[in-house]
Nucleic acid binder design. Structure first.
Length: 218
DNA sequence: AACTCGGGGCA
DNA sequence: TGCCCAGAGTT
């Protein structure tokens, strides 16, 4: 397991590699952010950003989303994939916001995860980005990078990965660490073709050294 | 724990 | 053109 010190150093190096790492979802308020993150499940943020300008123009509140037939909402988000379940979830979620929170977005993880289409990762992104609560949202990039570097164990589930990261990093870095690991995972430590041979973290990376040794990397 | 949903992107 | 990617929900 990577020490706290080495983990911190790795996060700093990722920051140097990707100084532009920050939240990529275009949002103006907690509600738009929530919708954007729900839409982003199983597709890229770039894809979501293609539909959100028109979507947010047309739908500005939970009340707008429940006024239209579900087929119309499906059609408005058709190009991002999984549009049937996402449209259904957004209407269900909108009803919940109206009935339980007077149309506002709740500010705690516990309340957020109860909403349709909102899981642990989405709840963390909303609380941290919209409400400034320190959190590490563990998506597949964060999970893969953490496991390859040896910050956590291979068998750890998402919850344990999250707790381990929080234990090894100071609270004020949680948000930055999240964004940096996403960039690092997406563009460098890729799922299929990690760039180990040119990686500045190779010395400290369990998986990278193994791959180099086994010549899995050119 | 394994499977499903559904597109876009890339080799 | 077929494989890979990305979370939440269901069983």
């Amino acid at each position: 397991m990577l020490s706290k010190k080495a983990t911190l150093k790795a996060i700093e190096v990722m920051g140097e590699l990707f100084p532009e790492a920050e939240c990529e979802l275009v949002h103006k308020n907690p509600f738009e952010l929530l919708i954007a993150v729900v839409l982003s499940a199983q597709c890229t943020d770039a894809l979501v950003n293609r539909v959100t300008p028109a979507l947010f123009e047309k739908y500005q509140s939970p009340y707008d989303y429940i006024k239209v037939p579900v087929e119309e909402l499906e059609n408005d988000i058709r190009s991002i994939g999984l549009f049937r379940s996402k449209a259904k979830n957004i209407q269900k979620l909108s009803h919940s916001l109206i009935n339980q929170y007077e149309g506002q977005v709740p500010e705690t993880r516990e309340e957020l995860v109860e909403l349709a289409g909102v899981g642990r990762k989405t709840a963390n992104v909303v609380t941290s980005v919209a409400f400034g609560v320190p959190a590490i949202a563990v998506d597949t990039h964060v999970e893969r990078v953490s496991k390859r570097l040896g910050i956590c164990r291979w068998k750890d589930n998402v919850k344990v990965v999250e707790e381990t990261l929080m234990n090894k990093l100071p609270e004020h870095l949680w948000s930055d660490a999240h964004h940096r690991m996403i960039f690092f995972g997406r563009y460098h430590c890729k799922a299929q073709s990690p760039q180990c041979s040119i990686c500045p973290l190779l010395e400290d990376c369990r998986e990278g050294k193994k791959r180099m040794k086994e010549r899995l990397i050119g």
